[in-house]
Design a protein around this nucleic acid. Structure first.
Lengths: 100, 100
DNA sequence: TCTACATATCGAGGTATGTCGATATGATGT
DNA sequence: ACATCATATCGACATACCTCGATATGTAGA
């Protein structure tokens, strides 16, 4: 858990939105055609549409969030689903509570 | 309390250090010649020396930390002392705990 | 194997941030 | 008023970030 790296990633409204939306996928996204559940999160495309940013930008954001441990990707066929990594998020907040 | 602004400010190791050092000024700084106490925090110069960054950079950092409500400045003659603004820091952490 | 689709990566332009030295401001003591 | 010291502000330049369109990669189905 690299606190500074995570902080940089969360210094952007779009990326914070992603994390917040994924707290309640069923309230923020339509059910996915193929899967019908949100166990593995939400596919990149739905996130991209909701963010109203280009596909390449959103893909980039998702992969940097994954890189610092905020998201966990799961591939289903051609779709990549992303869900929150609660472990890292909890550790991050704990670090702030202790050190800030 | 603007969460995103604060996050940007805290995406920098030097500025995080300032906040951490000011948690225990007596452990991190020599007693100030004129005042002999830390009620109003630590003067900019001591922070600058410890950070090993230029005077202008540190002054800039301190004023941006003040601007987002993380620090409170107090002027004593030609010295400006900075201390933590616990209210904002608490609100920031609370926001993260609720929204992240 | 060819096509279609979801995602990832590349390259690029504009904007923001990090950091500095130089200069300005404000306060103290002579 | 003047010299001195602490701090603040002003350019300036290098590096990083935001965001895009174009292209590449990987997967599924005809």
């Amino acid at each position: 858990m690299n606190y500074l790296e995570i902080n940089k990633v969360l210094s952007n409204q779009a990326r914070v939105n992603i994390l917040q939306w994924l707290k309640a996928p069923d309230e923020n996204f339509p059910p996915h055609v193929d899967l019908g559940h949100f166990k593995d999160g939400v596919c990149a495309q739905y996130i991209q549409v909701k963010l109203k940013l280009s596909q390449s930008t959103v893909s980039h954001y998702l992969s940097m969030m994954e890189k610092v441990g905020l998201l966990i990707p799961t591939r289903h066929g051609k779709w990549t689903y992303y869900r929150r990594n609660e472990k890292t998020i909890k550790a991050y907040i704990h670090f702030l509570r202790m050190n800030l």
